[in-house]
């Protein structure tokens, strides 16, 4: 454990990250509405040492009940339409929706039209649009930081 923690401290020192935020936080609920798993893999890494979003009070929460922002990835399949709307309905006000990745924005989506209900904008009011296929962790981190305090 000592070596693990020492290495993590070393990684942290080697990074030129902005200092932790003073006050403010953001509780994020992620909904995969039919992605290729790329946005998920990159979102997961925003908690890796090189990005470490928790330092800014940004964390992924288990329930939409606890969430400030709904982080939606994927083209929105017919089968995920209802779960997505249900998750949004469960959120307390004020609430924000982030449509993340080209698929969620309806750009270059592949698949059969009969299986797709998206883009996210057709179903929910979108506050944050983040293009990319997928957006990398730094882009996701920067975009989420802009939501703090809004």
């Amino acid at each position: 454990m000592f070596t693990l923690l020492r290495d993590l401290r070393r990684i942290r020192r080697g990074l030129d990250l902005p200092g932790p935020a003073r006050g403010g936080s953001l509780a994020v609920r992620h909904v995969d509405a039919g992605s290729c798993n790329g946005c998920e893999h990159e979102l997961t890494l925003t908690s890796a040492p090189a990005y470490d979003l928790q330092r800014f009070g940004i964390g992924v929460v288990a329930s939409p009940r606890h969430a400030d922002v709904l982080f939606v990835t994927g083209a929105v399949t017919n089968r995920m339409r209802e779960p997505l709307l249900t998750a949004y309905a469960a959120m307390p006000e004020p609430r924000r929706v982030a449509a993340v990745g080209d698929c969620a924005l309806g750009c270059g989506v592949l698949g059969s039209a009969s299986e797709l209900a998206g883009p996210v904008e057709d179903l929910l009011p979108v506050d944050l649009r983040l293009p990319g296929c997928p957006p990398d962790p730094a882009a996701i981190a920067a975009a989420l930081l802009t939501l703090i305090g809004q």
């Binding site: 290729c36 399949t77 995920m80 592949l110 009969s114 797709l116």
Partner: peptide, 26 residues
């Protein structure tokens, strides 16, 4: 739940269309 119908979407299409679908499957 994430069924996008990738395979039927590329049927009757040129082979490179299928490559894009295979690549974006995951």
């Amino acid at each position: 739940y994430k069924h996008r119908g990738l395979e039927p979407a590329a049927e009757n299409e040129p082979f490179d269309v299928g490559l894009a679908h295979a690549g974006r499957a995951c």
